[in-house]
Simulated scan of single mutants.
Amino acid sequence: MNIENQVLGLTKLSDYIKAFLAKNEQDYNENDSDFELLLEKSKIENQWFTIENQKFALQQWADLLTEENIKNWIKEYSISKISKRVGLILAGNIPLVGFHDVISVVLSNHIPVIKLSSKDKYMIPFLLKNWNEFSQGNVEFEFVEKLENFDAVIATGSNNTARYLEYYFKNHLNIIRKNRTSIAVLKGDESEEELQLLAEDIFRYFGLGCRNVTRLLIPQDFVIDRLFENFLNFQDVINHNKYVNNYEYNRAVYLLNQEKFWDNNFVMMKEDDKLFSPLSVINFSRYSSLDEVKIFIAENEENIQCVVAKKELGLDSIELGEAQNPGLDTYADNVDTMKFLSLI
């Protein structure tokens, strides 16, 4: 069956990525050199896609795509017997952010008709080409500049573009995703190591992903300096020209407006009730009881991708440091993509 070849091909793709990432440059063969050049090309086209962040994303996928993980994931769904064409409008805010949609469509026995993001043009075609080869030609896909001749669509955009997409695709089965962000709730007794894990949730991909924490809820007596001290592993973000431009702009605005903020020379913290914060800024608020936290989460539920917190707080949350490690059954905007695909 196609599905068996596809799963086998994905596991071989995983092994291929792991082998590449484990090598030193002097040990590269011709294929490895091509892979590295592709990463360099992506970085040149999109300066946010540093080699480190691209390799981090590749490692996450390589670790995830085991035969056991894939089979446990897809066994929960009925696979369509009739292949449909599913249009995919992919985002490009972080490396490979659209790859989950591509895999979901293929493993649902459908054909992805892919409109790539201009910010992430190279890696998904490269991985799909290799997946198809590892699957003995059983992975069908198409890349397009404009979506035409499709049965359903999955599109990701900003809140503004989502309104346009919802109107444009109103006569098609669709999933239209909007802006989301993530929050962290601190209990107050977190260890230094746990706060360093939180830094990973905040700064990985420069904070550009919907799973990046941009909003903190902290106890009344929590000392802000504890955060700054444990964020130092990511202080090099300030050496990135696009990041520092955002940092300097936002800092200048706060100074001109005489707004109160905390600053450690590479990230600012601002006491602000808003859920979304500008790049290089973390909004925070202090809470007196968990009831306040639960009300905040309920009021902002549609805009929160995930909540990061200790399990003992009793929230529907993931552990500190796990925001950028979603499972195959973790869906953007909490909409079950595989279930949607099984019904078209």
Rank of each mutant, 00 (worst) to 15 (best):
S117D: 07
M123V: 14
R180W: 12
Y122K: 12
A162C: 08
L116R: 05
G157F: 02
L96E: 08
K71V: 12
N171M: 09
M123G: 00
I176P: 06
N174S: 15
L186T: 09
N109T: 04
E142M: 13
K146I: 13
N93I: 13
K178I: 11
L116S: 07
V102Q: 09
E133Q: 14
S104K: 06
V185Q: 06
V185Y: 07
G157R: 05
Y164V: 12
E76T: 13
I124N: 01
P112E: 04
T161V: 15
Q136V: 12
S104V: 05
D151H: 13
V113M: 09
S118N: 15
K129F: 13
Q136Y: 14
I94E: 11
A91I: 07
Y168H: 15
A184W: 10
L107P: 01
K75G: 00
E142Y: 11
L90H: 01
S182Q: 02
L186E: 05
V113A: 04
I175K: 13
K129A: 13
I103M: 15
M123T: 14
A184E: 10
D120S: 09
V105D: 00
E145Y: 13
E142T: 13
I111D: 00
L88F: 10
E76G: 10
W73D: 07
K146A: 13
I154F: 05
N69A: 14
H172V: 11
K187Q: 12
N159C: 06
T181A: 11
S158Q: 05
G137K: 04
L147A: 10
